[in-house]
């Protein structure tokens, strides 16, 4: 494990050295979180979170189980509100507007911010209907346009060739990895600007994992991607920035190379090298 990781980190280093010659362009901020606190009833699950998320970057969130990674991710599309006891304070601006403001329409937000869940959750419908669902709820009825969206989304998730002959089959007949890529395609069909991924590969075999990682690299050209992962190599391989969460706090948030090579906080280093968590 450690050798693989060192390798990944070395790769990162090399890449980083190459890049250093070019002047660094700061990408545009999509999400800006300021002083975010979140409670589940009495449980203080997120404590004073400050973090910006930029366009065309992959932001990884790592940290031990129960530290609030999923909670933060679900706050970014206000999905966390489905839990009735949740209370928040602070602000998260998305493209300049505070999404925690009650007057902000969640439907708008979730149309622009797609989410891929830890466990693949296709609808009990055909593959075609799964992809067409998003466009349909947003009012697209034209069959030809829907056909095109379905094809493009499946291509976007690199699964068109596998599935093109069985579009009318029930999605439940797919393998776990295919289902997860179908869910990613379904998310792309709504043409979001940001994609939130909560441990998207935790239930997948190495090959499917690799495909999804490649996909993330591809998608990052157009989207901002936030990915929660328990897999350190994965974070090192695919992310530009990494945030380390611990007990509801951000211990460190920096460029992935810094986090993995010379973390400022001792606890970050300990966690990454597997000494705890």
């Amino acid at each position: 494990m450690s050798t693989v990781m060192t390798k990944a980190i070395n790769l990162k280093l090399v890449r980083n050295d190459n890049e250093r010659s070019e002047p660094e362009v700061q990408k545009e901020v999509v999400y800006d979180t300021k002083g975010l606190n979140l409670w589940y009833g009495e449980t203080h699950a997120l404590k004073n979170i400050n973090m910006d998320i930029r366009e065309k970057e992959v932001t990884a969130i790592i940290g031990p189980s129960g530290c609030g990674k999923s909670t933060y991710l679900k706050t970014l599309n206000r999905m966390v509100e489905l839990v009735p006891i949740v209370k928040t304070s602070g602000q998260i601006t998305y493209k300049g507007k505070n999404i925690l403001d009650k007057s902000f329409r969640v439907e708008d937000l979730r149309t622009q911010v797609g989410m891929v869940f830890q466990k693949a959750n296709p609808f009990p419908k055909s593959i075609y209907e799964n992809i067409a669902y998003g466009p349909k709820i947003h009012g697209i009825k034209n069959k030809k346009i829907l056909d095109e969206i379905v094809e493009n989304s499946l291509r976007g998730a690199f699964i068109w060739d596998e599935l093109k002959d069985r579009l009318n089959d029930n999605a439940y007949g797919l393998s776990g990895g295919q289902q997860q890529r179908l869910c990613i395609a379904r998310c792309l069909a709504v043409e979001p600007n940001v994609i939130l991924m909560d441990e998207p590969t935790s239930a997948l075999d190495p090959k499917s994992t690799l495909r999804i990682e490649e996909l993330v690299q591809e998608l990052k050209k157009d989207y901002a991607i936030v990915i929660v992962t328990h897999n350190m190599q994965q974070a090192a391989r695919i992310s530009d920035k990494t945030a380390f969460f611990l007990n509801g706090e951000i211990i460190e948030y920096d460029k992935t190379d810094h986090i993995f090579n010379n973390p400022a906080d001792e606890r970050t280093g300990d966690y990454i090298s597997g000494r705890f968590g």
Binding site: L82, R110, Y133
Partner: peptide, 8 residues
């Protein structure tokens, strides 16, 4: 959740 997540 999947449905809400797409803005439904």
């Amino acid at each position: 959740e999947a449905s809400y997540g797409m803005g439904a």
